[in-house]
Simulated assay, not measured.
Amino acid sequence: MTTAVDTLRRTAEPVPALRAARGAVLKDVEQAVATLLEGERARWKADAPQALPLIGGIADLVAAGGKRLRPAFCVSGFLAAGGSAGEPGLVDLAAALEMLHVFALIHDDVIDEADTRRGRPALHIAQARAHGAAGWRGDSARFGESAAILAGDLALTYADQLLAGAAAPVREEWSRLCSEMIVGQFLDVSVAAEYNADPEVSRWVAVCKSGRYSIHRPLHIGALLAGRTDLEAGFEAYGRALGEAFQLRDDLIDAFGDAETAGKPTGLDFAQHKMTLLLALAVQRDERVRALVLPRSGGTDGADADELRALLIDSGVRAEVEARVDHLVAEAIGALEHAPLDDAWRQELSAMAYEVAYRSR
């Protein structure tokens, strides 16, 4: 049966010329990050070679790949706003967004106690193993976490360094983006600790933690670099809907995905009882889920992941969240209809919405 989303998907094919233009800039972004890290290696090599594993950990995470989602939306926002690909500040802005993401990933892996990232040992795990192999004093796990916290802070410093010459409107948007992302991360942890199973709270955390940081703000900051303020409303509506869809897909990948395909451990949300929208809906919907995960209902911290997955399917929550993703994609695309954009960019951003919302990693 053909759905409305299937129909929309057929009308949102990528625009090759725009993809090529964005891809050329993103290659320069990769080079800018590599050059920055190579320069930092050279800077510290003679005076403090002990610092090299810190910089190397950041470089390894960057080299391991990733979606480069935030730089892609930043460059798209800039080009869609009529900016020239030769703008000198564009590459640095997009590179700063990737370094900010590196900061978030390194810290997130410590918070989530994740062992791998992008198919490789997480930075805190790699540093803990190096500590143990060297026979150094102290606790290896604690050393690894300390190194990861500092590596994340260093990545954030590099991001700010890349933005040093940006104009005031770009810096202001950058500050909003950073603060929202960090507050969203805390709320994610806090809601899990509280066992707050309110789906509206979980939905708001998803928008704050992911929607604004991943899509809305990168698009808007790119448009601001191009000198356009009239795209804010359209980009906000698009980013809010697509950002929630992005986070819901993350939830589904964690619950039902394959760790090898995802490039990171799955099932962590269950293990830590994170109140994702997926789990919050299930807690409200199904007494069996409440009994399994909520301590006040007799549950324990040892909820069985396989049993939870089965209940999410049986209760219809998985299907409901998939339907919610479909609705959000249609909403995001609808938000572009009245935005002051060229039709080609409207089509390209629609295609990007499908890729974000229906990815497997």
Rank of each mutant, 00 (worst) to 15 (best):
K209M: 02
R142C: 12
V91Y: 05
L37V: 13
D60N: 07
A141E: 12
I106H: 04
M1E: 12
A46M: 11
G227I: 13
W174L: 08
E38Q: 15
A319W: 01
L281Y: 12
L294I: 01
R359T: 03
Q272T: 10
V33M: 13
V189M: 13
E113V: 11
G302C: 08
G77D: 08
L311I: 04
A259Q: 05
V317F: 04
G65N: 07
P295D: 00
H338A: 15
D6E: 09
A17Q: 14
F235G: 00
L248Q: 01
A323C: 07
R240K: 14
E355F: 15
D28M: 13
I125C: 12
R203I: 03
I125W: 02
R309N: 02
L52P: 04
L312T: 00
R361C: 12
I55W: 00
S84R: 14
A4N: 10
G83L: 06
R70Y: 01
A20H: 15
V317L: 02
A164R: 13
G316P: 02
S84P: 01
I58A: 04
L268V: 10
G243W: 15
E244W: 02
G65S: 04
G138V: 10
L219F: 10
R117I: 05
G138F: 00
E13F: 04
R22D: 03
A64K: 06
Q284Y: 01
G152T: 08
A226K: 08
Q127Y: 09
L308N: 05
A94L: 09
